Computed example of a mutant assay.
Amino acid sequence: MSESLAGKIVFITGAASGIGKATALKLAKLGANLILTDVVEIEYEVAFPESAQQSDLSPIITAELDVSNEAQCQLVVKEVVQYYGRIDHVFNCAGINPTAYSILELPDGYFDKLWSVNVKGTYNVTKAALPHMKEHAGCSFVNVSSIMGQRPAARVAAYCATKYAVMGFSKSMALELGPKGIRVNIVAPGFIDTPTNNSVVAGPDAVKESEASVSLGRMGTAEEVADVVAFLMSKEARYMNGSEVSINGGLKY
Score class of each variant (00 low, 15 high):
4 S>W: 13
4 S>N: 09
5 L>H: 11
5 L>R: 09
6 A>M: 11
8 K>H: 05
9 I>H: 09
11 F>C: 08
17 S>W: 15
18 G>M: 08
20 G>D: 12
21 K>A: 13
24 A>Y: 12
26 K>I: 06
26 K>E: 13
35 I>Q: 00
36 L>P: 13
39 V>F: 08
41 E>L: 08
44 Y>I: 04
48 F>E: 09
48 F>L: 15
49 P>K: 03
49 P>Q: 02
50 E>H: 11
53 Q>E: 15
54 Q>S: 13
56 D>I: 06
59 P>T: 05
60 I>C: 13
61 I>Y: 12
61 I>R: 15
63 A>H: 14
64 E>N: 09
65 L>T: 03
67 V>C: 07
69 N>G: 04
71 A>S: 11
77 V>K: 13
79 E>V: 03
80 V>L: 11
84 Y>S: 00
88 D>R: 14
89 H>S: 13
90 V>G: 00
90 V>F: 01
92 N>E: 10
93 C>S: 15
98 P>D: 10
99 T>N: 12
100 A>Y: 14
101 Y>G: 08
104 L>D: 14
106 L>M: 09
107 P>I: 07
110 Y>W: 10
110 Y>M: 03
111 F>T: 03
111 F>D: 05
112 D>L: 13
114 L>E: 10
115 W>K: 01
115 W>C: 09
116 S>D: 03
117 V>F: 05
118 N>T: 09
119 V>E: 02
119 V>R: 04
120 K>G: 01
121 G>T: 09
121 G>R: 03
122 T>P: 10
127 K>M: 04
128 A>S: 00
129 A>W: 02
130 L>A: 04
131 P>M: 00
131 P>S: 01
133 M>H: 01
135 E>R: 10
140 S>N: 03
142 V>C: 04
146 S>R: 06
147 I>Y: 02
147 I>S: 01
147 I>V: 11
148 M>V: 11
149 G>A: 04
157 A>M: 07
158 A>N: 06
158 A>I: 01
159 Y>D: 08
162 T>D: 14
162 T>H: 13
162 T>A: 08
164 Y>D: 06
164 Y>A: 01
165 A>P: 08
165 A>I: 03
166 V>H: 11
166 V>C: 09
170 S>Q: 08
170 S>D: 03
173 M>N: 02
173 M>L: 10
177 L>F: 10
178 G>Q: 10
179 P>I: 01
181 G>W: 05
183 R>N: 00
183 R>L: 01
184 V>C: 12
185 N>F: 07
185 N>I: 11
186 I>K: 04
187 V>S: 03
191 F>P: 06
192 I>A: 01
197 N>I: 01
198 N>S: 11
199 S>E: 14
200 V>E: 02
200 V>Q: 05
200 V>W: 03
202 A>H: 09
203 G>V: 12
205 D>S: 10
208 K>M: 12
209 E>W: 02
210 S>T: 07
211 E>G: 05
211 E>N: 03
214 V>P: 01
215 S>N: 12
217 G>Q: 00
217 G>A: 00
218 R>S: 06
218 R>M: 07
219 M>D: 02
219 M>Q: 06
219 M>V: 09
220 G>H: 02
220 G>V: 04
223 E>P: 08
225 V>K: 05
225 V>P: 00
230 A>C: 12
231 F>E: 04
234 S>I: 05
234 S>A: 02
237 A>T: 04
238 R>A: 12
243 S>K: 06
246 S>E: 06
246 S>Q: 04
247 I>L: 05
251 L>H: 02
